[in-house]
Amino acid sequence: MNKSLALEKIRAFSPQIDKVGVEERVARFQTRSIKNESKMQGLKLALSMIDLTTLEGKDTPGKVKQMCYKAAHLHDAYPDLPTVAAVCVYPSMVRIAAQALKETQIQIASVSTAFPSGQAPLDVKIRDTEFAVAEGATEIDMVISRGKFLSGEYSYVFDEIAKIKECCGKARLKVILETGELATLDNVRKASDIAIYAGADFIKTSTGKIQPAATMQVTYVMLQAIKDYFDSTGKMIGMKPAGGISTAKLALHNLVMVNEILGPTWLTNEWFRFGASSLANDVLMQIGKSQTGIYQSADYFTID
């Protein structure tokens, strides 16, 4: 679909969101009773969907190497654990991560386009993305220009995403909407539609630098956008809530929601990811609790 047609369609059909209705629906996902065996499956599935993330100014090669080791060896004391889906780092750390993970199936995701603010000229963003891909990134997490979006320049936002998609080559593109800055659920829906039509492989809630981040309400609205796109075109788009999902319980609630909106086809790490740094340990502690019946302590799990 060409751009003008897509934007016209978004302007005409991107629905208004009933906030109260969303909150009610989301509350219901949190009351599902999950039996022990399913819970164990769910916890392992959640582990396999994690994009283990470090995005800090203080990141060092040592820190990134440690995290990559953790990505491949979540907790060797428990047999039969999956690895995480990917590690997510800054472009300057991509080469180190790629080197550390070359023997594994774990993907290398890099943030780009002047993450987290996105306040840079387009040519800098393109160069940023090309650099990350050349260094070995297999997934690119870009941010949209929220300032442009909020001032109504949808066309600019659309073009930018399309342009970055071109630079990605084989790498899959995740588009971060930074929903905490979009103010309303209507905007979240509109930004989701723009990202999807402009060529996103995944849409992602947040950078993790702004609160609120991945609330279930915004994830719900974005999942609904993915569903509507799938119903009209038959094409699947991935979803990545990021930021604020730090407990196993919250992760399971999210999985329940994905299953009930999009169905089990989306319940693989090809189509659903958690962007998180501390979630992995909480899930591991829950697995430990399920296996031994004893509540676990963070003292016995690696920090990175």
Binding site: G293, I294, Y295, Q296, S297, A298, D299, Y300
Partner: peptide
């Protein structure tokens, strides 16, 4: 017993 077994 839960309190006593709790690793934390």
């Amino acid at each position: 017993t839960t309190l006593a077994a709790h690793m934390d």
